[in-house]
Design a binder for these strands. Structure first.
Length: 194
DNA sequence: ATGACGATTTACT
DNA sequence: GTAAATCGTCATA
């Protein structure tokens, strides 16, 4: 039961459930030349949408930038921050419900040499140990924003070793100190045993 | 038209 | 530990 692409049904859940369910699954990026870059998802964050002060869709905010958050579960939301970094989210829930899961870290599986090339500055252990790092390593950028992970060959998630909720640590999210009472909610999830 | 600000990373004191 | 890098997007005017 490993290696199959996850389908729409998997993604159409609330972001907390999805954030936990994504841990241990395999993110697959297939380049135009057919080469696969893959990694095991070991850290995620849930963004709960309209009520969530840390979410780009807080208060129902809907702009050109965050439009992808309103797509059906299983689409990609890729955004640009700090003038230099891309971050990749998996959209959760249904169409018009702007929630998502930020993929924060991977353990590289396939295509490590290519990842190293893309992240020239990084040391081996830091290839995919942050949201913008993994985006750079897997060549994820604007061109993949809004793509459908349920049908795209360029980017999707495949079933990895299943965890059944065991070994998951929940902590507060990173970089959202501005979000007041939402900043300290435990919406960041890490796989304890990589 | 302008200005403030990031769901970060890296380098440096 | 602190701070610079760096620019698209959005709110305000």
């Amino acid at each position: 039961m490993t290696g199959e692409r996850l389908t729409r049904r998997f993604y159409r859940r609330d972001p907390v459930t999805l954030a936990k369910a994504l841990l241990g699954q395999i993110l697959v990026r297939r380049l135009d030349d057919g080469q696969a870059l893959t990694g095991r998802i070991v850290e995620t964050e849930a963004y709960l949408g309209i009520p969530d002060k840390a979410s780009h869709s807080y208060g129902g905010r809907r702009t050109k930038r965050n439009e992808s958050m309103y797509l059906d579960g299983g689409h990609a939301y890729v955004y640009f921050v700090y003038g230099m970094h891309w971050c990749f989210n998996v959209v959760s829930d249904r169409k018009e419900v702007p929630t998502a899961v930020l993929i924060r870290a991977l353990v590289p599986v396939q295509g490590v040499d290519q990842m190293k090339r893309r992240r020239r500055k990084a040391r081996e252990l830091e290839l995919c140990s942050g949201p913008a790092k993994l985006a750079q390593a897997l060549a994820i950028d604007r061109s993949l924003d809004g793509i459908d992970l349920a049908t795209s060959d360029s980017l999707y998630v495949a079933r990895g070793r299943t965890t059944q909720g065991a070994g998951i640590i929940a902590t507060s999210r990173v970089g959202v100190s501005y979000a007041e009472n939402w900043a300290k909610k435990r919406l960041r999830f890490l796989l304890e045993e990589p």
